[in-house]
Each structure stands twice: as structure tokens, then as C-alpha cells.
Nucleic acid binder design. Structure first.
Lengths: 199, 199
DNA sequence: CTATGTATACTAACCAGTGAATATACACAA
DNA sequence: TTGTGTATATTCACTGGTTAGTATACATAG
């Protein structure tokens, strides 16, 4: 167990993920993470320099899987570009109906730690959102959209807005409303030849 | 001072407002609020039953002024409906450039306390956003827009999305991008006779 | 003299981080 | 094969500080 090198650390990150996502950073003690991971606090501090370091690991661990999920939802969806982007919102709405759902871990962490501008967690969250934005931008560019970055940012704003609003109202229909807005914005930005019907 | 009845309580709420907005709920101790207000903790607990009660008072105190500001920005702006709504985003972008700006207190509180669904702070935040949504809806309805509630929610999503994104990236230009998206969505929803030019 | 309001001093729990010791496993020498 | 050193990994027990909330007493106004 010890020398496998990966198991204990991974178990701690997994425990941190469950607890931090559910209760927030300051709402979870290092002791609680250690207990959930089945190790002593001292062991946790062997693998992570500090609580902040653990928080950074928690968010880093969510980065790639999260992006992969969005890409998968987009890829698997049928229809044109607007419909494929809208599918991301619809899938997210489905996720948001699960009782354990609590919004976007990156946004919630950045909101909680907003008074610590240089905090690693905020840099990781910002990088995560930039990756998503860049993926959208490249996708739009490939479809011949005129201002792909601007449109990507508008979609991102709708997405992150729906995280916040759905978390507040516990009403996932806002996510579908955001998807419809995204659909409309993309449809309007499509080059003439690719629209469903010209006018 | 004592029997004036309002001064001490108001000073405590004012201190709570500054501290909670800046550092978050769990990041601020009751002692810190009491010290900033210039009273002892026991006095604070005379005026407020608990910390949660104080948090509720903090958010309640932000409700009306916040809404009034939005309405004022809308009313004072020149141009048609799309431009007047966009003006809200532009004014917000200006606010967001101030170094003490830290996003929307309602959203940040609801994100921090997401694991306490019935918490008064979340109910107050939800009510605040509903009021804004309803004001927008009524405004759109008065302009003859076909699905005013849907459009109001789309604008709200862009607004709250820009709170989250600008807080994360510390880049207020996202707020202007959101305003442009809002402009486009409203323009497209305007009844034929009120558009700048028909087609 | 009683309501309201304020202060001093306290509790019991919690929290991030550490000191010192111990256990395990692998490399390498005999 | 056996012994031994060393880096990795883990535990127990602790510290100093903070926290929400309270028991008690005192002041002041009507």
C-alpha cells in the first residue's frame, strides 16, 4: 500500500473532492478530510504542504474530467452547431437535478476565496475557464464564425450564469433557458451559407 | 445613543456589510464585526440572535439599494430598450474596476452556503434575484415583447454570469461582452414596429 | 423601578499545523 | 541468503490560537 505511491494521495484527493465540493473550503476541516480518507491528519500533511495545497489538488483533479465531459456532450449531440452547444446546457440541467449537485466547484471556490487574489485555487479556476473558452473559440472559428472569441465568451457567460442562478434558485430550468439563448446567439453569428435558412 | 434605537444596530450592520462582502461569511468572525462596529460582542448578540441572523440582516440591507441602482442606471441611459439594458452592464463594468469590488454579495453568499439549503441568506438572495427578474419582465412586457419572462431570465443569466466570470478573471471586459449579448437578444425579441430597422 | 442596552469575562469546541517516534520497503554489501 | 542503511510513509499526541455563543453584572432612561 505504502510504496504503490499513488493510492493514499489519491484517496485523500478523492475525500477532499467530495467534502470541499459539498461544504466549501472553509466549511471543511483538514481533520474531516483525513478522517474521510481513512488516514491521520499527519499523513495528510505528509502528502500536502498545507490546506491550500490540498485545495489546489482538489481543483486540479476536476479540471480535465470536467472539460472532457463538456466536449463529450458536444460531440455526441446531433444537429448543427447551435444544437450541439445547446446540448451542453441540457446535459448540465440533467446533472443539476441530482440532489448532490452544488454548482461549479471552480466558481464556488473563487467566490469563497475572493479576498485572496493570488490564491492557487483561483489561478486554477481561471485557467480551467480559459481552456473551456478557448475550446469553444476554436470550435466556432472552425465553423467560419466571424468573431469566434466574442461568441465563445458570451456562451461562457451564459453557462457560468446558469451555474450561479440554478444554485441559488434550485431550479434547473434556468439552464435550459440559457441553452436557448446560446442557441439564438450562435444561430445569429453563423455565416450565411450555414444557417438553416437564409433570409 | 442607546435609546435612539437605530444607531448601534445600524453600525453593526454596516460593519457586517463591509466585512462579509469583502471576506465572505465564514471568513469573518462575530468578534471582528463587533470590533469594527465599535461594540462588544455581547452587545452584538443583544441586537442579533445569532451569526446567521446577522448575515440575513447584511443581505437584507443590500437588497433595495442594489435594485434601485440598477433601475437608476436603466432610467438614466439614453437610447432604446436594448441600449438601456446594456447600460446596466456598462455601469456594472465600471463598478467592477474598483479594487474593492468582489462580485455580487448575494451570489457569493449562496455559493458559500450552498450546503445549507434552507439558510435565510439563500432565501433572501433568491428573493432579491426574483425581484430583479420581475422588474425586467415587467419592463419587457410593457415594450410589447412576446415572451418577456424568458427574455428577462436570459438577461439575468448574462448578468449573474458576468459577476462570476469577472470575479474569477478580474477582467471587467466580460461585463461589456455580456451587455452586448443582452443587447442582441433584446433587439431580436423586439416587436417589428420597434426595431431600429425592419427587414 | 423596570425596560433597554452595554460591558467583562468566560466556556467548550474546533482548527491548522507540528514534534517525535515508528513502520515499511528497497538497494546494496557481505 | 542475510544484514544494514536510507528514503518513504504513517501514527500519536500535542500546541497555540480562534470561534460562536453565554452567564453575570452594570448602566441609563423613562
Amino acid at each position: 500500500m505504502a510504496r504503490s505511491g499513488i493510492s493514499t494521495r489519491e484517496r485523500i484527493i478523492s475525500a477532499a473532492n467530495a467534502l470541499f465540493y459539498n461544504d466549501g473550503i472553509r466549511g471543511v476541516s483538514v481533520d474531516a478530510v483525513a478522517e474521510k480518507a481513512g488516514v491521520t491528519k499527519r499523513t495528510l500533511y505528509y502528502h500536502f504542504r498545507s490546506k491550500d495545497d490540498l485545495v489546489a489538488a482538489y481543483l486540479t483533479g476536476r479540471d480535465q474530467p470536467n472539460l472532457a465531459l463538456f466536449r463529450q456532450w458536444f460531440t455526441k449531440a446531433e444537429g448543427g452547431l447551435p444544437a450541439k452547444v445547446e446540448a451542453i446546457f441540457r446535459n448540465l440541467a440533467r446533472s443539476a437535478r441530482h440532489p448532490k449537485w452544488k454548482g461549479c466547484g471552480f466558481l464556488r471556490t473563487s467566490a469563497e476565496l475572493a479576498n485572496m487574489p493570488g490564491h492557487p485555487a483561483i489561478r486554477i479556476g481561471a485557467a480551467h475557464k480559459k481552456k473551456f473558452e478557448e475550446w469553444l473559440r476554436a470550435t466556432f472559428e472552425a465553423e467560419g464564425i466571424a468573431e469566434p472569441l466574442r461568441l465563445a465568451r458570451q456562451i461562457l457567460l451564459l453557462l457560468d450564469g446558469s451555474f450561479a442562478v440554478v444554485l441559488l434558485h434550485r431550479d434547473s430550468s434556468y439552464m435550459e433557458t440559457a441553452g436557448e439563448a446560446a442557441h439564438a446567439l450562435i444561430e445569429a453569428a453563423l455565416p450565411a451559407g450555414k444557417k438553416r435558412r437564409g433570409w
